[in-house]
Amino acid sequence: MKSSKSASRYAQALLDLAIEQNKVEAIAADMKYMATVCAENRDLELMLESPVVKADKKIAVLNAVFDQFDKATASFVELIVKNGREAYLPQIAASFDAILKEHQGIIPVTLISAQKLDDKVKNEIVSKVQASTSGTVELTEKIDPDLIGGFIVRMGDNQIDASVASQINKLKQRLTS
């Protein structure tokens, strides 16, 4: 995996540029589109990582694929390729979204449950998470039948595990120790 530290630095520089030029929405849309295209097209990623393909050819391909990009985004992508960092582009695009959310005070929260939770329970969990943070919660739901019951809440590096599977494992450890 590419260096996430480098990708984060480039993404932060792009966000600073977007704020300076008052083009945050346009550049955010460009980066989201780039992340989607790179995730769906392995050949594009392989081309970006290839040392055989020259920088000018990579720039030409990227300009053709992303011809609707804002001028600032296109210039940034070209600069990244000229500096030999084009393999970082998919990760820069993903990091940009995370850094932008942090800048806007949006906190991504993942709620994993054994089955779809009803709205009342979901809203109760979100309100408790919201009370413990200073920002807007952006909820993503996932279903994992292996949990048996209960839920797991992930917010950044923090995790609250209230799943039945976790409780069974803890009980098993206590009994076998």
Rank of each mutant, 00 (worst) to 15 (best):
I107F: 13
D97V: 15
I125M: 12
K128Q: 13
S113L: 04
E124A: 12
A94S: 07
G135M: 03
L139K: 01
K142L: 10
E141D: 03
I107L: 09
T110W: 03
N123K: 15
P108I: 01
G105M: 10
N123W: 10
F96Y: 10
L111A: 11
D97L: 12
G105H: 07
Q104G: 08
S127H: 10
S134T: 14
D97G: 14
K122T: 05
A98V: 13
K120D: 13
G135A: 09
A114F: 05
K142C: 09
L100S: 00
D119Q: 15
K122L: 11
K128H: 10
K128M: 07
A131D: 05
G105E: 03
I125L: 13
A131S: 04
I112F: 06
S132Q: 13
T136C: 04
T133P: 01
D119L: 11
D118E: 10
L100M: 05
K122V: 03
L117Y: 09
V137T: 01
N123S: 15
N123V: 08
T136H: 11
S95L: 01
H103K: 13
P108G: 01
H103P: 06
T133L: 09
V137C: 07
E102K: 11
S113N: 08
A114M: 00
V126Y: 04
D144G: 02
Q104E: 14
A131V: 07
V129N: 06
K120M: 09
L139R: 02
V137D: 06
K122N: 02
T140S: 15
A114R: 02
K101C: 08
I107M: 13
Q130P: 00
V126H: 03
I106W: 07
I106P: 03
G105N: 02
S127A: 14
L139A: 00
H103F: 13
G135C: 02
E141H: 10
I143R: 03
K128P: 02
G135H: 11
Q104W: 09
V129Y: 11
V126M: 06
P108W: 04
Q104P: 01
I107A: 01
I106N: 10
P108S: 05
D97H: 12
Q115Y: 08
E124F: 06
P145L: 04
L111S: 02
L111V: 02
I107N: 14
I99L: 08
I143L: 01
K128C: 00
T110R: 05
P108E: 00
I112A: 08
A98L: 14
A131C: 00
G135K: 02
H103Y: 12
K128D: 12
V129K: 09
Q130E: 06
E141W: 05
S95V: 05
S95M: 12
V121K: 12
D119H: 13
F96T: 03
A98M: 04
I99D: 00
L139M: 05
I106D: 06
D119I: 14
A94P: 08
V109G: 01
L111W: 07
T136I: 07
D119M: 10
K120P: 03
T140I: 15
A94L: 15
I107H: 10
G135E: 01
A98D: 14
V109I: 07
I112T: 13
Q104R: 15
Q104S: 13
D118V: 04
V121R: 08
I107K: 11
K120H: 14
